[in-house]
Amino acid sequence: MHTDTHGNPTRATILWLLLIVATVLTWAVGERGSSGVLIVAFLAVLSIAKGSVIILDFMALRRAPLMWRVLTLGWMALVWALIGLAYWNGMPT
């Protein structure tokens, strides 16, 4: 039985292009030298979106038991939450 765990090439190509666009966006933020809570939130969202593509599509966890998505996506969310918390703590008051 063919279960098509890994999706099709067209979808993969589109996702890859989106990942590159997101990377260029991250780089552009760096070039502008912007900072602040909103910028960090924006970069976090970009990173989590990219990570989700890797996790769900490339690693094919979309079709895996729920536990594996919880663990990996949860890891992304937790790491960014900690980074955000640390950034917030370090803001000049």
Partner: peptide, 23 residues
């Protein structure tokens, strides 16, 4: 930063190629 961004693109592209290899 440019080197870092270029490396991001390289890794993402490598990942994409790996997906194509599996497919």
């Amino acid at each position: 930063r440019d080197a870092g961004a270029l490396n991001t693109v390289l890794l993402l592209t490598a990942s994409y190629f790996v997906v194509r290899a599996v497919q």
